[in-house]
Write a protein that binds this DNA or RNA. Structure first.
Lengths: 114, 114
DNA sequence: CTAGTTTACGACTGGCGTAATGATT
DNA sequence: AATCATTACGCCAGTCGTAAACTAG
């Protein structure tokens, strides 16, 4: 996951030094992350030039997917949290009873049910 | 990432033992993964009953997102690999020249260009 | 020599497996 | 007692940071 975020940042900056700084890690650490990512995907995602970095076609493809996946996970995490808070506030509300999709046995341990 | 796959599998099986077996890890390892995942998301995703496990509303929301994200990453990895292979075979083909979206300087090191 | 990336290496953290503990029927 | 999940703990792989090495201009 961290590797994906690092890759996206690097693909935006096209410069290991700047990207590493923005990610609050050192340049070698970023280099290792990318190396490992490329090894996992088994594909060269970017080309190291002496005056910076450029994306390969595979890298561009991967960038789109990585961005989408990261955004999806962020949204999902947020949605789950919000869903939990909503259930929580409803559980504390004494006037509203349980609903079909939210039975008490999914919200409370059996021991602490009223 | 592994945690997401573990969670999805567990959500399908609703049983730590079976899910762990299918994931080829031990039950405690799976328990720890889920615990860390819930800590990261800061939300209870599933409720441990004595006769199995059940998803919370937040867990169901998270499950959908996790499934989508995992599938997206799988597809992306595959797509990147295929893109790389395609570029590779085209690079080896002497009759087809470079295209606008595939300039030589992204496919070859500067030193080994014709 | 400078700018930029990678390699080497010691140290730390995370995650797994085994074994023990807890809780419920 | 039996079943299912969690906690405790030792161990190994992964990852970080510092420092050294490599490459191209």
């Amino acid at each position: 996951m961290t590797r994906l975020r690092s890759f996206v940042r690097l693909a935006e900056e096209l410069h290991f030094g700047r990207a590493a700084k923005l990610l609050h890690i050192t340049q070698p650490a970023l280099s290792q992350q990318i190396a490992r990512l490329e090894k996992d995907v088994d594909t060269v995602l970017l080309l190291r030039g002496n005056r910076g970095v450029s994306l390969t076609p595979a890298g561009r493809v991967f960038l789109r997917g990585a961005r989408a996946a990261l955004q999806l996970m962020d949204e999902t995490t947020l949605a789950a949290r919000q869903r939990a808070s909503r259930a929580e506030s409803r559980r504390l509300c004494t006037t509203c009873g349980p609903r079909p999709d939210e039975p008490y046995d999914l919200l409370l341990p059996l021991t602490s049910r009223p």
